Amino acid sequence: LGLPKMEVFQEYYGLPPPPGAIGPFLRLNPGDIVELTKAEAEQNWWEGRNTSTNEIGWFPCNRVKPY
């Protein structure tokens, strides 16, 4: 089972920042694999864990694709 995984195809370094105070941003590099921890199809921002860095944070969902 486990959490859904997504592959990063466009880098994200915190700009634009996540809206409001939902949480810290998650740095993404192309090729990184992100395990989704909070993701809803109608939301533009998802939370996940970058398996390369083990960091957890928020990122724009348009930077990832199904793994």
Rank of each mutant, 00 (worst) to 15 (best):
L1R: 15
L1P: 07
L1W: 09
L1H: 03
G2Y: 15
L3W: 09
L3V: 13
P4V: 15
P4R: 15
P4S: 15
P4G: 15
K5W: 05
K5Q: 14
K5S: 09
K5P: 05
K5I: 09
K5D: 08
K5Y: 09
M6H: 05
M6D: 01
M6F: 09
M6V: 11
E7H: 06
E7W: 07
E7A: 07
E7G: 03
E7D: 02
E7T: 05
E7S: 06
V8H: 01
V8L: 00
V8R: 00
F9Y: 05
F9W: 15
F9E: 09
F9S: 09
Q10A: 05
Q10F: 12
Q10K: 09
E11A: 07
E11I: 09
E11R: 06
E11K: 10
E11W: 03
E11Y: 10
E11P: 08
E11L: 02
Y12G: 02
Y12T: 01
Y12P: 00
Y12L: 03
Y12V: 01
Y12H: 00
Y12A: 01
Y13H: 11
Y13W: 10
Y13F: 10
Y13N: 14
Y13Q: 13
G14A: 01
G14Y: 00
G14V: 01
G14H: 01
G14I: 00
G14L: 01
G14D: 02
G14P: 00
G14M: 04
L15I: 08
L15D: 13
L15E: 05
L15T: 15
L15N: 15
P16Q: 02
P16G: 01
P16D: 04
P16K: 02
P17Y: 08
P17G: 06
P17R: 04
P17H: 08
P18N: 03
P18K: 02
P18Y: 07
P18R: 00
P18I: 02
P19I: 03
P19W: 02
P19N: 04
P19R: 04
P19K: 05
G20F: 06
G20R: 13
G20E: 13
G20C: 05
G20K: 09
G20D: 14
A21I: 05
A21L: 06
A21T: 05
A21E: 11
I22L: 14
I22V: 15
I22T: 14
G23L: 05
G23K: 07
G23N: 07
P24E: 09
P24L: 05
P24G: 09
P24N: 08
F25E: 06
L26V: 10
L26Q: 02
L26G: 02
R27C: 12
R27W: 06
R27V: 08
L28E: 03
L28C: 06
L28Q: 00
L28H: 00
N29S: 08
P30Y: 12
P30H: 15
P30W: 06
P30R: 15
P30C: 14
P30V: 15
G31Y: 05
G31C: 07
G31H: 05
G31M: 05
D32H: 04
D32W: 01
D32G: 01
D32A: 04
D32I: 02
D32N: 08
I33C: 10
I33N: 03
I33L: 13
I33G: 04
I33E: 05
I33M: 11
V34A: 04
V34K: 02
V34P: 03
V34E: 04
V34G: 01
V34F: 03
E35N: 05
E35D: 14
E35T: 10
E35H: 09
E35K: 06
L36S: 02
L36V: 14
L36D: 00
L36Y: 00
T37D: 04
K38W: 07
K38R: 14
K38M: 07
K38T: 13
K38S: 09
A39W: 11
A39F: 14
A39L: 09
A39D: 12
A39V: 12
A39K: 12
A39S: 13
E40A: 08
E40T: 15
E40Y: 05
E40S: 11
E40M: 09
A41V: 14
A41K: 13
A41G: 13
A41F: 15
E42H: 15
E42Q: 12
E42M: 13
E42R: 11
Q43H: 07
Q43N: 09
Q43M: 11
Q43S: 13
Q43A: 13
Q43C: 12
N44K: 12
N44S: 15
N44G: 14
N44V: 11
W45N: 03
W45L: 02
W45R: 02
W45E: 01
W45P: 02
W45Q: 00
W46G: 03
W46Y: 14
W46P: 00
W46E: 00
W46D: 00
W46R: 11
E47W: 07
E47T: 04
E47S: 08
E47H: 08
E47K: 08
G48F: 04
G48T: 03
G48N: 00
R49M: 09
R49W: 06
R49F: 05
R49Q: 10
R49S: 04
R49T: 09
R49Y: 13
N50M: 03
N50Q: 04
N50E: 03
N50A: 02
N50F: 00
T51N: 10
T51D: 11
T51Q: 14
T51K: 09
S52Q: 15
S52P: 01
S52Y: 09
S52L: 09
S52I: 09
S52D: 10
N54E: 14
N54D: 14
N54T: 05
N54L: 10
N54M: 12
N54V: 02
N54P: 01
N54K: 08
E55W: 03
E55V: 07
E55G: 06
I56R: 12
I56E: 05
I56A: 11
I56N: 06
I56C: 07
G57C: 01
G57V: 02
G57L: 00
G57W: 02
G57R: 00
G57F: 01
G57Q: 01
G57D: 00
W58Y: 13
W58N: 00
W58V: 09
W58C: 03
W58L: 04
F59N: 01
F59G: 01
F59C: 01
F59E: 04
F59P: 03
P60D: 00
P60M: 03
P60R: 02
P60H: 01
P60K: 00
P60N: 01
P60E: 03
C61L: 06
C61A: 13
C61P: 06
C61G: 10
C61R: 12
C61E: 13
N62S: 11
N62A: 11
N62W: 04
N62K: 13
R63T: 15
R63D: 00
R63F: 13
R63N: 07
V64M: 05
V64Y: 01
V64D: 01
V64Q: 01
K65D: 06
K65S: 07
K65H: 09
K65I: 09
P66L: 10
P66N: 12
P66K: 07
P66V: 08
Y67K: 12
Y67L: 14
Y67R: 12
Y67N: 06
Y67D: 11
